[in-house]
Write a protein that binds this DNA or RNA. Sequence first.
RNA 1: GCCUCGGUAGCUCAGUUGGAUAGAGCAACUGCCUUCUAAGCAGUAGGUCAUGGGUUCGAAUCCCGUCCGGGGUACCA
Length: 596
Amino acid sequence: MSIETIIQKATVEAVKTLYAAEVSEKQVQVQNTRKDFEGDITIVVFPFLRLSKKSPELTAEDLGQYLTEKVELIDSFNVIKGFLNLVVSKDYWLGILTESFGNENYGFQQTGEDSELVMVEYSSPNTNKPLHLGHIRNNLLGHSISEILKANGKKVIKTNIVNDRGIHICKSMYAWKQWGNGETPESSGMKGDHLVGKYYVEFDKHYKAEIAELVEGGMEKEEAENQAPSIIAARELLRKWEAKDEETVELWKTMNGWVYKGFDVTYKTLGVGFDKIYYESDTYLVGRDEVLRGLDEGMFFRKEDNSVWADLTGEGLDQKILLRSDGTSVYMTQDIGTAKMRFNDYPIDKMVYVVGNEQNYHFQVLAKLLDKLGFKWGNDLYHFSYGMVELPSGKMKSREGTVVDADDLVEGMVQVARDMSAELGKLDNLSEEESENTFRMIALAALKYFILKVDPRKNMMFNPEESIDFNGNTGPFVQYTYARIKSVLRKSAEKNITISDSIGVESISVKEKELLKRISLFPSVVTEAGDNYSPAVIANYCYELVKEFNQFYHDHSILGETDENIRNFRLLLASSVSSVIQKGMGLLGIEMPERM
RNA sequence: GCCUCGGUAGCUCAGUUGGAUAGAGCAACUGCCUUCUAAGCAGUAGGUCAUGGGUUCGAAUCCCGUCCGGGGUACCA
């Protein structure tokens, strides 16, 4: 039981005894004592004044005396205004160390047979262009939230729905046929997804030129957009694809194959992966059948032009199209089909969609539709809605080339890590392979931490020039602290010092106690991150922890300490901190180097 | 227009179910490496928490209005 809970329970008793009144544990407001006051845990007494019919100070005195007397773990108390500050005994804090040291599961809940099964969808790329910074945020959030859910005792299946069909890929296909001269990843040395993306841009260039020409010839812009030869050709390809035209399907397979190979490299670099991948080309027909079933069963209706709609006006939403007048599927149709396939494949308890906040409305509608169609988790699907990544130049647009490419970004950061390490003269005695591996680790830590430390729901700013930082509140700073601890532990092993888990210290310093408090918070931080779907909570916790450790490290010598009991205690403390750092950062998908 | 999310230091961000004097990092300035890694530590400076009301012992936090910005809004995904 945590100290907070113990105090809450005891306070309920105290109020009952002293004032003959009933309060619930939740009504007892406990918080960590501010650093500038003496004490560890503070109770806010204002809510009890009505019951005590005394001043805040006297009420706090009453409660303080009672608690100090009855609760063994409380040593003393002091009162400032309406705040009762309690001093918790050192033995309690030392107990935290016993609990966390060498405990692989500290702070994590285990999964069992009856654990909830959560499916997390993330990434979900289109296959006509390479991944960019926006996808990076999505992938990192998806991967991290999956790990956090696992740490909260859920069974997690990570899934990806690949948008592999539609007009977008046909545009790339047409451009490649037209102007590609048979170029392949092998012949050009280009990564497959970049090659296909190149033709997507190529398409747009020609398309825009054609529109301009038509408009100059006196055509209205809107009509020109529909009459340009390129778009007509792309639409023709889409029709051929839907009709399963052999040559078209073959080209589609080839070009998608290039893209997948490229994506795999990027995913591997980012350290993300999936347990099950779905393809829109498989699911959209299933969706169409579901919609037609809904139509038969009277849940949906058909308009005069043959399009199929759901009427959600009774539930505070609008009417939503489900099948176009020509019978083809829309985005919503595909999501219904994908849901149905997943539902058939797994006994899903909860579905989490990691998708940007521009689709908030879409998921509101999807939840209602799935519910109507009889999926038990439909109504409480969770849309993990995150904000966009903005650049100093404004929003990113693929076609206008204002995107930050994922592969380029990572490579750039690795180079910065390389340069900085060279400048600091670190890692000089490591092998080429080891140091390259470390540069990569550092670069990815910087990138991942930068993105994950901010509240997922908010839009965030990324400045490629300035956001790449390795000092202060950054991933490398956390790694650096870890590497420092590892270095101390290596040196202690070299000196044949064995770390004992029995602690025999008379007193502990303020910094040491602060560190123990931080460690004790880890389990509740993991829970909070899971409840709120927030990797940022973990990131900020790790930062506070390592900041605290660096202060301790600066003020206290570990191996230089002559008192063996104290030295042993500090080694235990450092070791526990390092393992909490590793576990916490692991939830963000960030690896810790042994040295840097 | 309607729906929705946001506005905290020059910049990027934290800020617990409403609690004590609103915190970090970057950038600027000042100190600290013959001592376990200076990617560190300590310090100075920087705030009308967009704005006006309300609720209460107490509001950056809850409610209402206003201003500014992002996103969505029936056959793009």
